[in-house]
Lab assay of single mutants.
Amino acid sequence: EGEAHRVLFGFVPETKEELQVMPGNIVFVLKKGNDNWATVMFNGQKGLVPCNYLEPVELR
Rank of each mutant, 00 (worst) to 15 (best):
E1Y: 05
E1P: 05
E1R: 11
G2D: 01
G2I: 03
G2R: 05
G2L: 05
G2S: 06
E3N: 09
E3S: 12
E3V: 13
E3Q: 15
E3Y: 08
A4N: 04
A4H: 06
A4R: 10
A4L: 09
A4M: 11
A4Y: 12
A4S: 08
A4F: 10
A4Q: 11
H5E: 04
H5R: 02
H5V: 03
H5L: 02
H5P: 00
H5Q: 05
H5Y: 09
H5N: 06
H5M: 06
H5W: 02
R6H: 06
R6G: 01
R6F: 05
V7H: 00
V7D: 00
V7K: 02
V7Y: 00
V7I: 07
L8C: 07
L8R: 12
L8M: 10
F9H: 14
F9W: 10
F9Y: 14
F9C: 12
G10L: 08
G10S: 14
G10W: 09
G10D: 12
G10M: 11
F11K: 03
F11M: 00
F11N: 09
F11I: 04
V12C: 12
V12M: 12
V12W: 11
P13L: 06
P13D: 02
P13S: 07
P13T: 04
E14M: 10
E14N: 15
E14R: 14
E14F: 08
E14K: 15
E14T: 14
T15G: 11
T15R: 14
T15M: 12
T15W: 03
T15Q: 05
T15L: 09
K16R: 11
K16T: 12
E17C: 10
E17M: 10
E17D: 13
E17A: 13
L19Y: 00
L19H: 00
L19A: 06
L19G: 03
L19Q: 02
L19V: 07
L19K: 00
L19D: 01
Q20D: 07
Q20F: 10
Q20T: 09
Q20W: 06
V21Q: 00
V21H: 01
V21T: 01
M22T: 14
M22K: 14
M22H: 15
M22F: 11
M22W: 12
P23E: 09
P23W: 02
P23H: 06
P23C: 04
P23Q: 08
P23R: 07
G24D: 06
G24R: 02
G24F: 00
G24W: 01
G24L: 01
G24T: 06
G24P: 03
N25F: 01
N25L: 01
N25S: 11
N25H: 10
I26V: 11
I26G: 04
V27L: 04
V27F: 02
V27C: 07
F28S: 14
F28H: 15
F28W: 14
V29D: 00
V29P: 07
V29C: 09
V29A: 02
V29F: 00
V29I: 03
K31V: 08
K31D: 10
K31R: 11
K32H: 13
K32S: 06
K32C: 06
K32T: 06
G33N: 13
G33Y: 11
G33E: 12
G33D: 14
G33L: 13
G33R: 13
G33T: 13
G33H: 15
N34K: 14
N34S: 15
N34T: 15
N34Q: 15
N34P: 15
D35E: 07
D35P: 06
D35W: 01
N36L: 06
N36T: 07
N36D: 10
N36K: 12
N36H: 09
N36Q: 10
W37C: 09
W37V: 10
W37P: 02
W37Y: 10
W37M: 15
A38W: 09
A38N: 06
A38G: 01
A38R: 02
A38K: 02
A38T: 04
T39M: 09
T39C: 05
T39I: 04
V40Q: 04
V40N: 04
V40M: 04
V40C: 14
V40W: 03
V40K: 02
V40Y: 00
M41S: 13
M41L: 13
M41P: 03
M41Q: 12
M41T: 13
F42A: 08
F42T: 04
F42K: 08
F42E: 04
F42S: 11
F42V: 05
F42I: 04
F42L: 09
N43E: 14
N43V: 01
N43P: 02
N43W: 03
N43S: 06
N43I: 00
G44H: 03
G44C: 08
G44N: 12
G44R: 07
Q45C: 07
Q45V: 06
Q45I: 05
Q45K: 12
Q45W: 08
K46E: 11
K46D: 03
K46C: 13
K46F: 07
K46H: 06
G47P: 02
G47M: 06
G47R: 03
G47F: 05
G47L: 07
L48N: 08
L48S: 09
V49E: 00
V49N: 06
P50G: 04
P50H: 03
P50N: 02
P50F: 08
P50A: 01
P50D: 04
P50C: 01
C51S: 08
C51L: 11
C51E: 05
C51R: 13
N52G: 08
N52I: 05
N52R: 13
N52F: 05
N52E: 14
N52W: 05
N52S: 13
Y53H: 14
Y53E: 02
Y53Q: 00
Y53W: 04
Y53K: 08
Y53A: 10
L54H: 00
L54I: 06
L54N: 00
L54Y: 00
E55P: 00
E55N: 02
E55R: 08
E55A: 10
P56F: 00
P56I: 01
P56Q: 08
P56E: 04
P56N: 01
P56K: 12
P56M: 04
V57K: 02
V57A: 09
V57P: 02
V57G: 03
E58H: 10
E58P: 12
L59I: 10
L59M: 13
L59W: 13
R60M: 13
R60E: 15
R60G: 15
R60V: 14
R60P: 15
